[in-house]
Design a protein around this nucleic acid. Sequence first.
RNA 1: GCCGCUGUGGUGGAAUUGGUAGACACGUCAGACUCAAAAUCUGAUUCCCGCAAGGGAGUAACGGUUCAAGUCCGUUCAGCGGUACCA
Length: 803
Amino acid sequence: MQEDYKPQEIEPKVQKEWDELNINKAKIDKDKEKFYCLSMFPYPSGKLHMGHVRTYTIGDVIARFQRLKGKNVLHPIGWDAFGLPAENAAFENKTSPRDWTLKNIDQMRSQLKQLGFSYDWDREIATCSEDYYVWEQWFFIQLYKDGLVYKKKSLVNWDPVDKTVLANEQVIDGKGWRSGATVETKEISQWFLRITDFADELLEDLELLKDHWPDNVITMQKNWIGKSEGTIVNFDSDIGNLEIFTTRVDTLFGVTFLAASMNHESIKQCDANIIKFCETNKNISQAGDDQKSLLGIFSGKYATHPFTKQKIPIWFANYIVDDYGTGVVMCVPAHDTRDFSFAKKYDLEIKEVIKGKSDTLPFISHGTLCSSGDYDGLESKEAMKLINKYLISNNLGSVETKFRLRDWGISRQRYWGCPIPMIYRDDGEVMPVDESELPIKLPNDIDFTVAGNPLDHHESWKYTKCKLTGKDAIRETDTLDTFFESSWYQARFACPTENTSMLNNDANYWLPVDQYVGGIEHAVLHLLYARFFHKLLRKKNILKDKEPFKSLITQGMVLKDGSKMSKSKGNTIDPQDLVEKYGADTVRLFIIFASPIENSLDWSDKGVEGSYRFLKRFWNLAKEVKSYSSKEDSEEYSKDEINFLSSINLTIKKVSNDIENRYSLNTIVSSCMESTNLFIKEIKNKRIRSKIINDYFMKLIIILSPITPHICYEIWNQFDKKDNIFKQKWPVPDKNYLEIDDVVFIVQINGKLRKRFELNRNLKENDIENIVLNDDDIKKYTDNKEIVKVIHVKGKLVNIVIK
RNA sequence: GCCGCUGUGGUGGAAUUGGUAGACACGUCAGACUCAAAAUCUGAUUCCCGCAAGGGAGUAACGGUUCAAGUCCGUUCAGCGGUACCA
């Protein structure tokens, strides 16, 4: 065994041996339980950053653990390779997005290999390859045929200089993030996916994920889907029937005005000055419900209350959302905060119809109805039922469910993405390309010197013919949102080279992903889209399960000095430098040890030193264990030996639970450190015979190996020349030593710790009391006091209650 | 605003079912080894009083339940995350 721990020598050597052993290759094996472990694949932005290292280390620890547990593990990796940064880089460096992306992939692949992650590299996927996106195009066509894809006009952020659509997060203070030009809202025609058809299913199936996904992610998805049950009420008015949507029909008698969105169609029937007012004010930012930002105008028209037949003024207001509900709202200022502010500002009537705990308005909770005709005295819930019943039977309304979730806009006016396989024929026909023409390849000869989407002015690509009719046609030049690629990659990893279909039956063997690992920032979009896609694939009988990701871990961000690492702040830590200095095992160990995985992690170089120090100690311990010898005279285990066995077996039990049930990886490291310290101490004391030390040290190596695989593999080979560490089984604690006879009881007086006693755990309560109450130290407290009672907790504690 | 989460030493954090608060580390201090430094090893390290033995306080604040509360309940404060006129 080498004198000193030299990771720079060990790690490359060991990694080469792993490649030769081919241990990471995943094959279908129906005799074994499968385990699919997946970390969110990276965008190939250039170099690996610490956030990547964290996600992939967590995934690797779990994958390696499950292999030791005897599971058949799939642990793949790939590249989310389409996306805007490649275009920007191409624009700035005059390279092609493809070359830039492929170069980055090469660099990051070698970095991942250096860190020793146990991927099945034969399954590597890059989403920008035709073999991958051809199936997306095929699937898009199927969805189109099923009516799940449609085109409609929608408002987008438009950068007039770059001639491109910007995502909301790319608009900073109303200006384009790159051009600095004032962003315009523009209405353009885009492709949409009918995710709203699946709103109920996406909501209901969250139940299946309960206890396996973090609660906050489930809540965020629930809120995002935003299901609310309410009532549509018809108001007769000067401008025809107006439908409104409300979740509080119990407040119907408190309606003092109606408010419509400034985009509402009824506006056409109003005076020119009103139309003009709405035109100028409809796009004004509407943040906050303070009176200043609330804007409205009286339409001059009236509606009739369905019950009281009173005249109710109709207003246009900027706080009414056009595309939620019906775009018209019944306003009850006494019981809604925004209606209240609006009524105050424009001096409108406020009519109280619910009495509750508080007298201050607006009172927005449920309560008892008043001033509500026949419904006075009823509780809100009961009143809603009866009012709904009346409205329905008199054709004045209906009960309906609304969702906040919008259909998914998937068009991007970009080059570096999957081409949408549609054509616009000369005769006006919009249709998918013939499936035999797939894939519609992204051209490589593009011109980035002209602003806008290069596909738009690539004439030989754009102008084409319809295969069926031979008629002239123009290709769709929009490409797909890159969330499209990341919505099904987890399934494709099961059969990455399948070239006759999108997915084959292997996907149904490996899916669902048993453990998914990734950042919380994907809590809604990616995870919702992937769930949706899975349901689409299920509907097409391609996949069987209901959900793609059985269990989810969301890890926190890696920070430096309390803020996010970024190039502009100059506070980045390059994993490469650290790996070169300390080795991959130290980096992996530190990133696991420093913090629970869901917390954010503030990077500290000092902490890395500490992890490195531990591995050196572990290495030196291995050397000592190898040369350790002791007298082997007695058959019976000594008390020291029993304590030692108890301690290590309890550690095995705890660590197994930590990794398997609690996802508490940092405490695994602490436990291994404690055990290491115990071994060092006991070797020095020479009280434990060498067979025990040897046997249990081997178990300790296995326990630590998912986190620091290189050093553990190397040390293992020093002890066991026949079988390497991958052939071993995760240790099972020996039950004989989990509950030993002599344990430390703590004795409390009135809940305060006073003394520790080493006693046999099986002693009767009476005997314990005799020993404890006759102890001189305890007597000091109990003399001249009345003992009210004594509480026993078996094997642990005695609490004496005195007065 | 609404929804969710979190508040523990100088720092990261541990305490899994209500039962020894501060494990394991980092940092700091002291000591050993060394001509010296690095590395390594040993010890101390929540705060207050005390030479010590020992005693007291203590998990954001206040209150409650309990023999016993970091853990459960209520109120307040602070921070983080999501979302925003969604009727």
